[in-house]
């Protein structure tokens, strides 16, 4: 039996590490550790993407997944709280759902093409013409770039629309200072109990 080559071994080890990280995220209650592990998860998946020849995707995943999304989550933690207040509980219905879904998906895997099969249907049809045309038609040696920016540039336009919508949503949710009908500004309205307590103490002092 031939030994699996080094790429296969790296692939197996990285996927195993990803699984361990995912289970650790499930078990952790300290949200700071959860966010740190999420960053590690993204970095490991970026490594896996390199072994699968997707260098552009690995670059983006390392920058966006491990970088920006970790920063956003740490920012949210600073504004909320650091710990899950309830102990992790076993959810029987949830467990049932994921076991059924997982079993159905694994039952379907033998129908998938073998890993790395060059004759798989997804490599036929238009892909050879993309690879051949990248130099002659577009003039960019990186095939991923020429598909992204030229052959399928309407996808990228749609992506810009999605980012714009999400950005507007975040601004509407957090951007403006709110005042309710009593004239309380946002900071006061956010913690009404704390504030009422303070007012009472002030009143007693008078």
């Amino acid at each position: 039996m031939p030994m699996p080559d080094i790429i296969t071994i790296v692939d197996i080890v990285l996927l195993a590490l990803l699984s361990i990280t995912a289970v650790a995220i499930l078990m952790m209650r300290h949200l700071f550790a959860v966010v740190a592990l999420t960053g590690a998860f993204s970095l490991l998946s970026a490594g896996l993407l390199v072994t699968l020849d997707a260098v552009d995707v690995a670059f983006t995943e390392a920058a966006v997944g491990a970088g920006i999304s970790t920063v956003l989550m740490l920012g949210t933690l600073a504004l909320t709280r650091r710990r899950e207040s309830r102990p992790p509980r076993l959810s029987p219905i949830g467990l049932l759902i994921i076991i059924i879904t997982g079993a159905a998906l694994i039952y379907a895997t033998p129908d998938m093409p073998k890993f790395g099969d060059p004759n798989a249907p997804s490599h036929q049809h238009i892909i050879p013409s993309y690879i051949k045309g990248s130099q002659d038609e577009i003039g960019i040696p990186n095939i991923v770039t020429s598909i992204l920016a030229s052959y399928r540039s309407f996808d990228t336009l749609g992506e810009v629309a999605v980012i714009f919508t999400a950005g507007m949503g975040v601004i509407i949710l957090l951007g403006r200072r709110r005042e309710d009908e009593h004239g309380y500004s946002e900071d006061v309205a956010a913690y009404p109990l704390v504030d009422e307590g303070k007012l009472k103490i002030d009143g007693e002092a008078e």
Binding site: D56, L72, S122, Y130, V144, E159, A166, G167, G169, V170
Partner: peptide, 24 residues
Amino acid sequence: NPLPHVLILTAIVVGISTTALGLA
């Protein structure tokens, strides 16, 4: 195959947008 790479590049950016909106 370069086509899945392109699709996933788009998906990563859309994913960070939804994460940001969820966190907000």
